[in-house]
Each structure stands twice: as C-alpha cells, then as structure tokens.
Design a protein around this nucleic acid. Structure first.
Ligand SMILES: [Zn+2]
Ligand SMILES: [Zn+2]
Ligand SMILES: [Zn+2]
Ligand SMILES: [Zn+2]
Lengths: 152, 152
DNA sequence: TTTATATTGAGATATTGTATCAACACTACC
DNA sequence: GGTAGTGTTGATACAATATCTCAATATAAA
C-alpha cells in the first residue's frame, strides 16, 4: 500500500456559519431561506435530497418555498460548497463538500465520509497512454455499509 | 506503475445480435421494438441518451413508442447489458457495457472507452480500515477529450 | 384453435428540477 | 426621508426524464 493511501484523511463537513461566510464572501446575501437550507443540510448530517431538506424544514415550520430550496442547493453546488452525489440507484442526493471530494456512502442509512485523495493518477496515466485521450476530470463514489448499520 | 495497470484492456462493445441473444437467454422476447433499440445503440457508438435513440430511429421511420424505448433501456440495464453513465453535467446517458465496467468519455463528442480494471482495491482497503465501513460497490467515470477532438 | 402470457403504444402521472414574474427587501444616492 | 437599482423570494408554469395504467396486440403453449 502506498504512502499516499496511508495518509488518506477524512474531510470534515463545514459548519453552517462557515458556509454562510463563504456565501457572503462570494457576494451573495445570507438570507433566512438560505440559512435555513444550510441549517437543514448540516443537521441531516448525511447525503440528503432536496425533499429531505424540505421535510426537515417543514417540521420546524420554517420552510422557504420549494423553488428557493432548489435555488439555494444549486447556488451552493455552483460555489462548490455542496456537491451532487452519484448513487447506485439515483443521482438526486447532495452532500456538504467541496470541489474534488469523493464520498463513501452507507447504502443503508446514507451516512457519508468525504475524502479527496483518490489515488487514481496511475490509472489515469495508463489510460491516457493506451487511448490517446487527455483526461482531466473524474467521478468516484464508493458504497457500502457504515459501522452502525453493520452492527445492527 | 503496477503490472495490473499495465494489463489494462479496453472492453469492446457487444454487437447487436449478441445482445439480442442474451436477452433471449434471460427469457425475454427479441421483438422488433427491442431490436430497434439495440440497433440504434450500437449504431450511435457512444454514450447515448434515450432522446438520441428516439431521434436515430425516427429518422429511419421505425421508432417504437417512447415508453417502449425507456422500457427497453431499463430492461437492458437490469440485464447488465447497458449501463447508466454518471456524467459531469447530467446522468441521463447510457452505454453498451456490462456490470462492473467503467468509462472514459470524451466531453466534446461523447466517444467512449470501457474498461473494468479500475485498480481501486488498495484505496478500498485503506478506507475500510480507516472508517470501519464495509465497501462493496463503486462508481468510477473518467472524462476528457478523445484523440479526434484533441486534433481539431 | 384456444388459452395464457408477454409486449406494445398512448396517455396519464410522477419526480426533479428550471423559468417567469410580480412582490418584497435592501442599498446607494439625491 | 424619498427614489432608483439590484438581489431575493414564492407561486406558478413549464421542462426533461422516466414510470404507470390499461386496452389492444403479438406470441407461445396447450
Ligand atoms: Zn449506515
Ligand atoms: Zn450520476
Ligand atoms: Zn471526442
Ligand atoms: Zn471498478
């Protein structure tokens, strides 16, 4: 096993106030609807759908309009504060994690670990030599069961 | 670079008659609408959308109903003869390729190479040890530009 | 031929979003 | 304080992808 892989570090999700600060820094207003979406995403603490954000907020009688929830998720994805998760069944989940992060996702409960050291450089080099393609991006997501779900 | 990676082999797409044979073997009838979808997918020779299948067939005045195209694509995905491609922009493209295949896709023209030796075992082992997760599946797609598009 | 099953096609429906637009909020300037 | 310009919201319409329903049809089996 390479030294690179040994150094694999989990990326911790950013707290809501830090995400809000980055929105402000990018020139967007930190409004109540946007803050509400951030709070919901942080509280859910897993790979979430827009519907799950809406439900979490509705239960607390503070849901913005569904259009604003979609808009906020899209804005946060564009700002690379959220990221779409490519799942085995569907691709309609999001996580709090930046640009190049990859994820390890529990298919049972949605629990999620992020990491950014994917160790794909050798594979990419080999494929570039074999195919003549120039490779400049990739999607990698891992799926399994988390310790909690394994224990049940 | 490991010996495993040096042995990386491109997977060739199956021809239409072989796909039809596998449908029959699985107990499904090889009907005209299903054959038409297979012909369209083989002819397109890239990562294709359902809409592109429909257009290809409409131009030849032989399009089955759109519902049957969707049904056939889904059936072929379930039979692991087609596979959904997780793209950078959207996840509504499919390819002719079986269960564990990964893809190298040209973002410019959709040209596609399949391979199945992803070399992720070390990464998976490391992550399992670090997180306690049990990992049993993954999505990996690579994106770039093909030699033809690089030459333009 | 008769019967049972599989498949199709049209249209309704579902899901996941995006576009439009009037109302509102905030800011800067007068 | 008023006024104009900008950004944001929420309701609704719309779009894209995909599935469901169900009567009609094709196929296979008896
Ligand atoms: Zn779990
Ligand atoms: Zn995807
Ligand atoms: Zn190309
Ligand atoms: Zn793999």
């Amino acid at each position: 096993m390479s030294r690179l892989l040994k150094q694999q570090q989990a990326l911790l999700p950013a707290p809501a106030h830090e995400l809000a600060a980055q929105m402000a820094e990018a020139g967007y207003k930190v409004t109540q609807p946007r803050l509400a979406v951030l709070r919901a995403a942080v509280a859910l603490d897993k790979a979430f759908t827009v519907h799950e954000l809406e439900q979490w907020l509705l239960q607390r009688n503070e849901s913005p309009g569904i259009a604003s929830i979609f808009r906020t998720v899209k804005l946060l994805c564009d700002l690379e504060l959220f990221q779409r998760i490519h799942g085995l069944e569907d691709c309609h989940r999001y996580s709090i994690s930046g640009g190049h992060a990859h994820h390890l996702i529990c298919v049972s409960c949605g629990a999620l670990k992020s990491f950014d050291n994917c160790g794909l450089r050798d594979l990419i080099t080999t494929l570039e030599q074999q195919t003549g393609y120039h490779i400049n991006d990739h999607v990698l997501e891992l799926f399994g069961r988390c310790p909690r779900c394994l224990a049940v």
